[in-house]
Amino acid sequence: MESKAAKNLFIWATVICTAVFIWLTIDTHLSIPKRTNTDQLTDEVVSGKRVWHKYNCNDCHTILGIGGYYSPDMTKVYSSRGENWLKVFLKNPESPDPQRRKMPNQKLSDDEIKKLIAFFKWVDAIDTNEWPPEPITVAKATGAPIKDTAQILKGKNVYNQNRCDLCHRIGGQGGVIGPDLSHVGTKRDTQWLSQLVKNPKSINPTTQMPAYPQLSEDEVQALTGFLGGLK
């Protein structure tokens, strides 16, 4: 090939590929509103994104898989953790376990937390071509199903948040004051469990277990759904 031809190759390849790229960009612009539900991209969501930037969250966490790899991905955090969990966690993210990787307390105001959660909720609904993928196999180390549905995960969060593990244990992890719950689903149904959670004394007047009136009906349902599934 001559020098001149090489130069022409360079120029034409660049021009054509740039043109194709711009064409694809225009088409992408046309389809993003639907794929990202821009009708739900409210001011609150946008201010939530500003909170996300303000604290530089993205340099520890990934979102849509982009960012720092130090901390979990935030793309589906809204559906997997639920609003209440996020509210409590963001207020005080510090882990009680000194050996665990920690998130520093950003001292977010309630307003900032609300906005950030609105942002996560909007991100959760983006059409990501099914990313992150569903796990191929299910790793089963305890009686608990690992491939959690959103509801089960929510129940697990209620369990963790209310520190049930201080007294109870599942799969060998947790306290010894209360009964082992690893296979509680084989003995008790969800109805029995939810009555126990709401008012333990109504089932056993001498029990030391405290009542949890602060749990919403929704949370009780998630919790008992999770416990009932431990078989």
């Binding site: 090939m1 001559e2 020098s3 090489a6 130069k7 190759l9 360079f10 120029i11 390849a13 660049t14 054509i16 590929c17 740039t18 194709v20 790229f21 694809l24």
Partner: peptide
């Protein structure tokens, strides 16, 4: 000549 070819291919493949 080779510089042109390489850079041409870099942009042709890299942009898209």
């Amino acid at each position: 000549k080779w510089l042109y070819i390489e850079v041409g291919l870099v942009l042709a493949s890299g942009i898209i």
